[in-house]
Design a protein around this nucleic acid. Structure first.
Lengths: 240, 240
DNA sequence: CGACAAGTGCTTGCATACAAGCACTGGCCG
DNA sequence: CGGCCAGTGCTTGTATGCAAGCACTTGTCG
């Protein structure tokens, strides 16, 4: 299908850089606590400081990086308080969406969700692949209730939660449990049992959440300890 | 009390500009659809384009302004879809917070809310004053449930809703009704009747929301009509 | 040996110059 | 008279230079 290339909003280099950096932070390729440098990033990406800097400012507003003037920029450590906030937020929104399902569910979305669930149960699924399916599943449920846009707001605010979830997946490689919970939710939705759907959803979301404390004990250096952050400039020493 | 001026994060000029512009957009001093110009704003604020531009980028990410490369920057028109999304979001979060109230409520916050309610009922209250009290009241309820931070996320996402609410206040100057609803919610919370509190809260939030269609009929030029925006460069003609 | 102070190299914040592109204007030509 | 087309002035995007400041190193002096 010949997509009209004429975007109403032109693609800028900044947007591409922003998306790239954001993905690297969320997938932990840029681990929590890592020192960033506008100059280094600009050089490695082959652009000037300007678009890199503007991207960092956006990521800072999302809470994914912290910028300390005259000191440096750092990937935020996972903040348990922010994880908890995002958990509360997503639970409130997803449960409210279940209450708001229309009588007639969109067939196209339902079929998409069925395909998604089937793929989740395939063997040998990579962590990133499962994560993607997981996100698509929850987003699909929000679309069923007609609140897809509200979900994008939640998605933007749950960066800390997502990083913690990824850490959980890398620790405990058993997405099968989550896949089963997804199916349980879906069946309740299709069956029209809102109460059961709510219960299943709440159980599912809290199961994901409960892993975090265990992970924190295992990898404390990835988590923030004190609200008064500890910015540390990395050593100036250079291998040569 | 001698506040330690030594902020951990130094205040930058950009932050000040960002707060200023954001306030001007939310209070409709910069009306929906208004054309902005990085150069003009920079000149009028006495700084260079850089901090202004970075502020506009942040506001664009919040959806309060739209930036069209090589065309111009504009204050977003109020988007009914985004208003509806924010309404759904805040209702979900505030109701969930009521479900999550602790057994023992914080006395300091309770007293603050009582003072707030009393001030709401004073005669001759300006619209902006009432709006501020309104915001503080809802934020106070969120603090009671221990989810103040989740509220900041909602607050950041509800810019379109707030502008619509302000339009409603300017149209229909009767904040007394809202003040009474606030007291009803508060009394139910203090009385420990979560069910009643939820009902009162839902009624209150939807009352605010229901005004919007009327306002839209009255001032359609402030609302967005088509998702495919209509960026129009303002005339180059200059009075002289 | 210990402590203090200047030096060095990095950091981000801000200012500014240039590049690419859109929209309107006004003149030219059929 | 109508339509095309270069010209002009604005827009935002990007690159770059400089300023202010922090942290570490190193030399100096007691």
């Amino acid at each position: 299908m010949a997509q009209p290339k004429r975007q109403r909003t032109r693609r800028t280099g900044r947007h591409e850089i922003y998306v790239t950096l954001r993905q690297m932070v969320l997938t932990l390729q840029l681990p929590p606590g890592a020192a960033l440098s506008e100059n280094e990033l600009a050089a490695s990406l082959g652009v000037s400081r300007t678009p890199v800097r503007e991207s960092l400012i956006l990521l800072a507003q999302e809470g994914l990086v912290q910028v300390f003037p005259q000191i440096g920029s750092f990937v935020s450590r996972v903040d348990p308080a922010q994880v908890s906030d995002a958990q509360f937020l997503r639970e409130a929104v997803e449960l409210a969406a279940l209450d708001d399902l229309p009588p007639e569910l969109d067939d196209a979305v339902l079929q998409e969700l069925r395909d998604n669930l089937e793929r989740q149960q395939r063997e040998g699924l990579g962590i990133e692949e499962f994560f993607e399916l997981d996100e698509a599943f929850h987003q699909g449920l929000m679309r069923l209730s007609g609140h897809a846009n509200a979900w994008t707001t939640v998605a933007a605010a749950k960066g800390h939660l997502d990083r913690a979830r990824r850490l959980g997946l890398y620790e405990n490689v058993s997405p099968a449990v989550f896949a089963d919970q997804h199916r349980e939710i879906f069946d309740a939705v299709v069956g029209g049992d809102v109460t059961l759907a709510r219960t299943a959803m709440r159980t599912h979301l809290r199961a994901v959440f409960s892993d975090i404390e265990r992970i924190r004990a295992h990898s404390p250096e990835l988590f923030a300890t004190d609200p008064s952050a500890v910015p540390v400039r990395r050593n100036v020493v250079v291998w040569e």
